[in-house]
Simulated scan of single mutants.
Amino acid sequence: MSVSWLGYPQVMLAWWCPLAAVGLWHLLRRGSIRLPARERFVLAVACALTPLLAMAVPYLPHSPLRDALPWRAPVAWGISNGIADIDHGHVLSVIAAQLMFAMSLVPLASMAVSFLAGAFQVVRTGRVFARLEPQQCGDVWIARASGPATRGLASTVGLVRPRIVLGAEVAASAEASAIIQHERAHAEARHPLWIFLATCALRSWWWIPGRKTVLAEVRLAAELWADQSARETDGAAAVAKALCAQIDAASPRHGGVAAGGSAAFLDPGTELTCRAEALASPARVIPVWQAWAIRGTTVVMVGAVTLLL
């Protein structure tokens, strides 16, 4: 079994590229948590989508870049280096050949299954909210149906055209302004779409350790971003009251359920402690040039990993 097989395109895409992307994010995590929520979100989403972008890089075996690398990268959809020198009398060689074939097929199959599952979830969520009989009021949709499903309901649904859906009780509450501003930030930044892509992409690389932490960061950063937007408009105290009201409405003792959707005000997977600490602390702000420098550096790093792996 030759060690050179570790540099084959299918191995690079199935293992080294996602491992490098996730590992790099974990390496930068200690510094990234000190950044504003917008930059944290950009870094986490970029990490999640890098292996997906690498799959779309054309396979150019005669390019100067490819010849300059000690491994055989990159590779396009469905294209890989085959193994012709298999010694069928050697068990390890046969097993290695089968593993190489799996590394060509499994990432594509996993990606297809993951996005199909994501599409199914989007359709199911759309049907759930359709049954709530929402009525448009400006840029907000108010659920006319009553019951536990609308208690504390505040969510942003839809990928291309996000819609803010509120329960009637939430829309009439004193915290409505902060909640609407929070959801409006989700909609304007297309958080449901980016979370959908990050979720499907990371779910495709189920064999890579540490990927769930990246997805948790994507969701948390989106919530912190929306909290900060609402904080700038209504103040930290109003956002904190709105968050407490949503938690109380979703608690079992009040017969409520957590709002479901693409990016809910109260997401079950969100670290509420981090959000509370962020609201209790001064807002994290960096100069505009630093923000753009971080985003530019992120693009360069994503491009490098995408092209080289």
Score class of each variant (00 low, 15 high):
50 T>R: 00
287 P>K: 07
206 W>C: 14
7 G>A: 13
99 L>I: 12
210 G>K: 11
173 S>Y: 01
10 Q>M: 04
298 T>M: 05
89 G>S: 09
98 Q>H: 10
202 L>W: 06
201 A>T: 11
235 G>A: 13
231 R>H: 09
305 V>C: 07
204 S>F: 06
107 P>R: 03
270 T>D: 13
209 P>C: 11
300 V>I: 15
287 P>R: 11
281 S>R: 13
136 Q>P: 11
225 W>S: 10
45 V>W: 01
116 L>A: 15
112 A>C: 11
263 A>S: 15
12 M>I: 04
287 P>H: 13
280 A>F: 07
153 L>T: 05
91 V>I: 09
67 D>Y: 10
117 A>P: 06
14 A>G: 04
188 E>N: 07
172 A>K: 13
83 I>Q: 15
32 S>V: 14
56 A>I: 02
146 S>L: 10
22 V>P: 04
21 A>T: 06
80 S>L: 07
144 R>G: 00
250 A>T: 03
286 I>A: 12
161 R>T: 08
251 S>L: 05
227 D>F: 00
89 G>H: 08
71 W>H: 08
108 L>E: 10
236 A>P: 05
210 G>T: 10
135 Q>C: 08
277 E>M: 12
188 E>R: 14
55 M>K: 03
153 L>F: 02
260 G>N: 05
235 G>Y: 15
173 S>E: 04
239 V>G: 03
25 W>V: 00
56 A>D: 03
40 R>F: 02
4 S>K: 14
56 A>Y: 00
35 L>M: 15
44 A>H: 08
183 E>G: 01
166 L>Y: 11
49 L>A: 08
83 I>Y: 14
22 V>K: 02
291 A>N: 05
280 A>V: 01
225 W>P: 00
124 R>P: 01
32 S>C: 10
165 V>S: 10
64 P>N: 08
53 L>Q: 03
123 V>P: 00
266 L>A: 08
51 P>L: 02
256 G>F: 07
81 N>V: 10
56 A>G: 10
15 W>R: 00
150 T>R: 01
55 M>L: 12
194 W>A: 06
297 T>L: 15
43 L>G: 01
97 A>Y: 07
290 Q>A: 14
2 S>V: 07
106 V>D: 00
154 A>D: 05
152 G>C: 08
174 A>Y: 09
129 F>K: 01
87 D>T: 06
190 R>Q: 08
265 F>T: 08
261 G>D: 05
17 C>E: 13
27 L>Q: 07
138 G>D: 14
248 D>T: 07
35 L>T: 06
255 G>P: 11
213 T>M: 15
212 K>F: 03
120 F>M: 12
181 Q>N: 11
10 Q>S: 03
22 V>F: 11
129 F>S: 01
261 G>Y: 13
188 E>K: 11
137 C>M: 12
246 Q>R: 05
161 R>Y: 10
178 A>P: 04
301 M>Q: 09
261 G>R: 04
207 W>A: 09
172 A>Y: 02
197 L>M: 14
255 G>C: 04
270 T>W: 02
179 I>F: 00
287 P>E: 09
57 V>H: 02
252 P>Q: 11
282 P>T: 02
105 L>C: 06
207 W>S: 04
14 A>S: 13
130 A>L: 10
55 M>H: 09
9 P>Y: 14
